[in-house]
Design a binder for these strands. Structure first.
Lengths: 221, 221
DNA sequence: AGGCTCTTTTAGGCTGCCCTAAATTTTGTA
DNA sequence: TACAAAATTTAGGGCAGCCTAAAAGAGCCT
């Protein structure tokens, strides 16, 4: 296996992320968008990644990861999420502060380091945003979860994840006390603006906008 | 302050290291040697670093760090050594395994991360090899220490550091049980090959070669 | 001082990764 | 189906960081 650059790794991760979101071959524009580079630069890189057999690439048809590309991307996700757990659990950063640091830490190359970090953290299955952490073999733990927006009236559940990872959203959730593990009980839905009324932790009634409800993952209980 | 690349950081660190060792302006060849690059490439980089006012450079005269170059290099040393402590204390790596990982980790950019890591580790003053960790302001803690080779007969002391950081040396020290904190009592010196006889931890007599004695730092007590 | 050797710099070139502008292909819609 | 708009690729270029070969400077020895 040839050496792979920091930049190549970032492209693979972007492709992985977009593919996961959209479930179809990934377009040049989508990548250029995700990475803040021009489409022409993306095409350049796609040729190189294709050369190294990390992606399947046919001109004008979009790309998909090969098995080895997928393995690398998954491993980056594993490292990113483990480092996020480290930053939150051990260094007491909050969930909205860790992304940029993890973005750098995920490029540290050392299998042994990752495995020992995993052990040090107690083999966590989810990161501070509720996203699953793949194991060393690349397997994700799945969970039955739904956007709060899709729950039926009367449902009780627990906040287990977020869709939007922006600082603004995460800080807003902190203000609302809608952190991971919070218990919610869906009382009512207002058709006018699709906002919802919930009881938080069995105590406080709260109205959540459609946008919030859409970006919060709930596990029913 | 402009952005500084990974590579530029490595040059600054190399210059810092050589200057510390040799106490005079650092030559192009010394850098090329330290970094495993050709002298012509070094000249190239020296021009760029000089342009950014990170080094003082006059053709054919060798280089020294400017204040801002020095600050950056010192901060890299701080990060390197803190991460080494983390790897040994928290992830249970041994002192001969951590260098390459720390070499990568030292390039992570985040002041806040470094400070929290420092706190998490209990503000260590020395790394796993006994080298001092500069504080956030760049100040090193000094210690009265001598190569074992220079001790007088009869001296008692404690192993506090090593000069040679090679895996081979460190692993050999482990075999000899000459780890940091070990107590030594210098019994005798053999002029023939400059080897020394010691008592280790008040118990075991041992002969150490000149090379070992030269590379072990002792604090008298 | 002259000459030899070692060190350093200059010249010219390559690769990775990025860009803009222009050409080409695909797609959506009249 | 044809054509305009959007997406993508090609062409050509820049910069960082590396290299080799050749030129230039410094240091030393007689």
């Amino acid at each position: 296996m040839e050496a792979i650059s920091h930049t190549e790794e970032n492209y693979l991760k972007a492709i992985f992320k977009i593919a996961e979101r959209e479930g179809k071959p990934v377009s040049t524009n989508a990548i250029s968008n995700e990475m803040n580079t021009k489409a022409a630069s993306v095409t350049d890189m796609l040729k190189r990644l294709s050369e190294k057999e990390l992606i399947h690439y046919e001109k004008y048809k979009g790309v998909t990861l090969t098995d080895s590309g997928n393995r690398i991307a998954t491993h980056l996700v594993r490292k990113h999420r483990l480092w996020e757990v480290f930053l939150v659990e051990k260094l007491h950063f909050s969930w909205d502060e860790v992304h940029d640091m993890a973005e750098q830490l995920e490029h540290i190359h050392s299998e042994e380091l990752v495995e020992r970090l995993d052990e040090f953290l107690g083999f966590p299955k989810f990161d501070p945003h509720g996203d699953p952490i793949p194991d060393a073999a690349g397997n994700f733990t799945f969970r039955k979860q739904l956007p709060m927006l899709d729950l039926e009236i009367g449902t009780k559940g627990v906040v287990v994840g977020v869709q939007d990872h922006s600082t603004a959203f995460l800080q807003y959730l902190d203000r609302l006390e809608l952190v991971l593990g919070a218990e919610v009980h869906l009382l009512e839905r207002f058709d006018y603006d699709e906002s919802v009324k919930i009881i938080l932790n069995g105590q406080k009634e709260q109205i959540l906008s459609k946008k919030v409800a859409q970006n919060l993952f709930i596990q029913k209980k």
